[in-house]
Amino acid sequence: MPTMIREYIRSAVAGAVLAGCFVAALLALDVAHLRHLVLTDEAGGLAVLMLVAFNTLLFGGVQFAIRIMGQAHTPSPPEEGGGLAGTLHPAALTVAAEAPPPTRRI
């Protein structure tokens, strides 16, 4: 299995765990009377399922982004006199100055 697919699956599982914990905390703390709404409405189970599903997408995507960005590395600077760029020197430029255009007063 390719490495990126494996990382994505791990991120999705981590996102599902985080989403389950987050929704459980929302319901346990009764934020905005959400527990009351879920328990008294006939579509409460669907609401909880949607909360978990969409938070899984969110947290899984964040986990995947963190893992991908964590794999980036900064290249080491080239040694003195070596590397692709070599030694850089500033370029001297001469520019002829032009007179500004005359301004007209109205």
Rank of each mutant, 00 (worst) to 15 (best):
I5S: 00
I5V: 01
I5C: 00
Y8E: 06
I9F: 00
R10N: 08
A12D: 03
A14E: 10
V17M: 06
L18K: 00
G20Q: 00
V23F: 01
V23W: 05
A25W: 15
A25G: 15
A25L: 15
L26S: 07
L27D: 03
L27P: 06
D30I: 05
D30K: 06
L34Y: 04
L34E: 02
H36P: 01
L37K: 13
V38N: 00
D41A: 14
E42T: 13
E42G: 04
G44R: 07
G44F: 05
V48W: 05
L51D: 00
A53I: 12
F54V: 15
N55M: 15
N55V: 11
T56Y: 00
L57E: 06
L58E: 08
F59K: 01
F59Q: 03
F59W: 08
G60V: 02
F64M: 13
F64E: 04
R67Y: 05
Q71I: 06
H73F: 11
P75V: 12
S76K: 13
S76R: 15
E80I: 13
E80C: 08
T87H: 07
T87D: 07
A92M: 12
A92Y: 11
L93C: 02
V95F: 11
A96C: 10
A97C: 11
E98C: 12
A99P: 11
P100D: 14
T103L: 13
